[in-house]
Amino acid sequence: MGNPVVIGFAPLADATASVLVLGSLPSVASVLVGQYYGHPRNAFWPIMGRLFGFDATAQYSERCAALQAAGVAVWDVAAQAQRPGSLDAAIRAPTVQPTDLDGLLRRCPGIGHVFFNGGAAATLFRRHHPADTDIRQLPATRLPSTSPAHASLRFEQKLTAWQVVRDRVQSS
């Protein structure tokens, strides 16, 4: 089977975004359904739905529109990388091709804060986005992963931690 190359999605963002949530790279389940956080047990959409008042079980296009209307952009740190399976720990660091986060900032100049969906996203960001880039000048916060693989926290604990995203959007 080797080390398959996983190719990420286009950013979910528009010019009104005030925060950016960065993941690492889409999971196998996400790639199969062509959706950010597409694994049925990933807590991302239920958390965002609770924070921003939309139905987390709505059609994907409706959830994306609701998130964009709330001022939240979503993308990944890696545009592509070799990774067997879905675990972030299996991402082969030398194969990571980073996304153009500075380009995203030019298209979405209102983004004023970066939130990492878990430690792997934060680590990949530090490794693959140089300190002198515009994106690295923004405040950044690591949040607990919404992945079902990160089972050390219950949903309510993750929801509480992620409330800082809503707070930051509301203060923008």
Rank of each mutant, 00 (worst) to 15 (best):
L20A: 13
L138D: 11
S30F: 03
N117Q: 06
D102N: 14
F52V: 03
G23H: 00
A140H: 12
R168E: 15
P144D: 08
F155V: 06
L22P: 09
L51I: 05
A149R: 09
S24E: 14
I111V: 15
A120N: 11
S147D: 13
A93Q: 12
P94M: 05
P98Q: 04
A89F: 02
R154I: 05
R83N: 13
V114Q: 00
Q97A: 15
A93T: 05
V77D: 06
L67R: 05
L22T: 01
S61Y: 04
T133S: 15
Q82S: 14
Q82H: 12
R83Q: 15
P94I: 05
S171K: 12
E62V: 12
L101R: 03
S147N: 11
N42P: 05
S152I: 04
Q59A: 15
Q157T: 06
T95W: 00
H113P: 11
T95E: 09
G49Y: 00
I111S: 03
V28F: 04
R142D: 05
R154G: 08
M48Q: 11
V164Q: 14
Q82K: 14
G23S: 13
P26T: 04
R127W: 10
T146Q: 03
L67K: 02
G119S: 14
L153K: 11
A70Y: 00
A120K: 08
L20F: 01
N42F: 03
P144V: 01
E156T: 11
A90H: 13
A15G: 09
Q35A: 14
C108E: 07
S152N: 12
Q35G: 08
R127S: 10
Y60A: 14
G110S: 09
F54K: 07
A10M: 12
A69Q: 14
Q68S: 14
F115D: 13
T160H: 14
A93H: 13
G85L: 07
Q163G: 04
W162I: 09
F155R: 10
G23Q: 05
P4R: 07
F44C: 09
H39Y: 10
Q157Y: 00
L25A: 05
Q82I: 05
F125C: 08
R63G: 03
G49P: 06
G118K: 02
P109D: 03
D102I: 06
